[in-house]
């Protein structure tokens, strides 16, 4: 069902957890569809210095969450904003078609977290 890379991220997810007093937090999904992803960011000079996630969801949901945290750590915010759900799925070597709709939301959660950071900073 899942390829090796997906299974690797599912089995050994990177950056699981929370960041206390995170600079930005983003959450997407709802329990109805079976996916809730929450991403925490730490930001310095518009660079993502730390990122963590918590996810309620299937193997694909956990793997995409893990993957997106790896992809953005150390990246500039505007670079991170360019990462799409599709890019996350591709970085994982692809996902089963049935999983593309509701599990592949990690980039959205990231974008929400960045927006949250920008909104907080603007205040």
């Amino acid at each position: 069902m899942y390829n090796e890379k997906v299974m690797d991220h599912f089995t050994n997810p990177r950056n699981v957890g929370e960041i206390k007093d995170a600079a930005g937090v983003g959450e997407v999904g709802n329990a109805k569809c079976g996916d809730i992803m929450r991403i925490y960011l730490q930001v310095e000079n518009d660079i993502i210095t730390d990122v963590k996630f918590k996810t309620f969801g299937c193997g694909a949901a956990i793997a995409t969450s893990s993957m997106v945290t790896e992809m953005v750590k150390g990246k500039k915010l505007d670079e991170a904003l360019e990462i799409s759900n599709q890019a996350v799925a591709e970085a994982l070597g692809g996902l089963p078609p049935a999983k593309m709709h509701c599990s592949n939301l990690a980039a959205d959660a990231l974008h929400e977290a960045i927006k949250d950071y920008i909104a907080k900073k603007g205040k």
Partner: peptide, 10 residues
């Protein structure tokens, strides 16, 4: 409670 079935299965 609080977890999802497929992850559990896997």
């Amino acid at each position: 409670l609080y977890i999802e079935g497929e992850s559990l299965l896997l």
